[in-house]
């Protein structure tokens, strides 16, 4: 199945786009040509040049440098969000699925309540109560998605608990960690990877949307959504300002979505449940 993926040129391209972006984000200070915050009033709204490859914004700051520094809060934080979501969901799902009985019932009812909470409302609720800021946006995103993963993982725990090889492992006295890591995890992993890829795209969109509204990353910090918010103020005179950050979001989200779709095809998973 990995070979399938490597043969898929689209998937490789997506992986390359994501990989390069992540690296650029990690090494932003070395890659970016300028300080993302240092403006130069004399160099406002410059078009592309060798010195400023993507021009400058309304405060004379280098757009490319701001884009590169904006990678960290966008992708890296969304990856962190997904990792936390999956960990939390997996832990909850494993506990619920292996406990069974009333505990399972109660835990799953709680999941239902969480799932019946629409994502948009959950974000406004959490950010509204905990206050404006990136940490709270991340918490909100985790709260939205974890129940979904919890339910899925519980489902596969129940499904695999009674499979022959697991029963066999248990009778031969293997520890439950062994069962988990050797049998259960490999079985649910493909599905999780596909969903996680699609959800990462969704989280990126979410983070940038909230920053755009001023609920996440705060200006003047470089973040793509926040940059668009600043570009909005000069839309009449300088509409070109909104192109670079918008295209950046679009490219990345598209890459994650396409990767998820290709993975789904490569791993032959039916329906996504989204």
């Amino acid at each position: 199945m990995l070979r399938n993926l490597l043969e898929d040129r689209v998937a490789l391209l997506c992986l390359a786009v994501i990989g390069v972006t992540v690296l650029a984000g990690l090494f932003a200070p070395y890659v970016a040509p300028h300080d993302p915050l240092a403006g130069n009033i004399l160099y406002k709204f410059k078009t592309m040049s060798w010195n400023y490859p993507l021009g400058t914004d309304q405060q004379g700051r280098c757009v490319l440098s701001r884009l590169i520094y904006g990678i960290q809060p966008t992708i890296l934080l969304s990856l962190v969000t997904m990792a936390a979501t999956i960990t939390l969901g997996a832990a909850y799902g494993l506990v619920s699925g292996s406990a069974g009985g009333l505990v399972d019932e109660g835990l799953m009812r709680f999941c239902d309540v969480m799932l019946s909470f629409p994502s948009q409302v959950m974000i406004l609720a959490v950010v509204g109560m905990l206050g404006v800021g990136m940490e709270n946006v991340i918490i909100a995103n985790i709260l939205i998605k974890w129940a979904f993963y919890a339910r899925m993982i519980r489902g596969s725990v129940l499904g695999y608990r009674n499979r022959n090889y697991v029963v066999f492992s248990r009778t031969t006295g293997s520890g439950s960690w062994f069962i988990l890591s050797r049998h259960m995890l490999p079985a649910v992993l493909p599905e999780i990877v596909v969903l996680a890829s699609l959800d990462t795209g969704w989280v990126i969109l979410n983070i940038s949307t909230l920053s755009f509204l001023g609920l996440g990353v705060q200006a003047p910090a470089p973040e793509w959504g926040a940059m668009l918010n600043e570009a909005r103020q000069v839309i009449v005179a300088h509409p070109g300002q909104m192109l670079a950050p918008g295209l950046a979001v679009l490219t990345l989200v598209a890459a994650f979505n396409m990767l998820g779709d290709s993975l789904r095809d490569a791993l032959e998973i039916k329906g996504s449940g989204r």
Binding site: G201, L205, S208, T209, F212, G225, L228, A231, R232, I235, P239, M242, G246, V249, L250, V253, A254, N257, M258
Partner: peptide
């Protein structure tokens, strides 16, 4: 459809406003 789901809709709003 693919781009419709990958595009931030606030950005589309800008393009449309402009």
């Amino acid at each position: 459809v693919f781009f419709g789901t990958a595009m931030p809709n606030y950005w589309v709003a800008f393009l449309a406003i402009w």
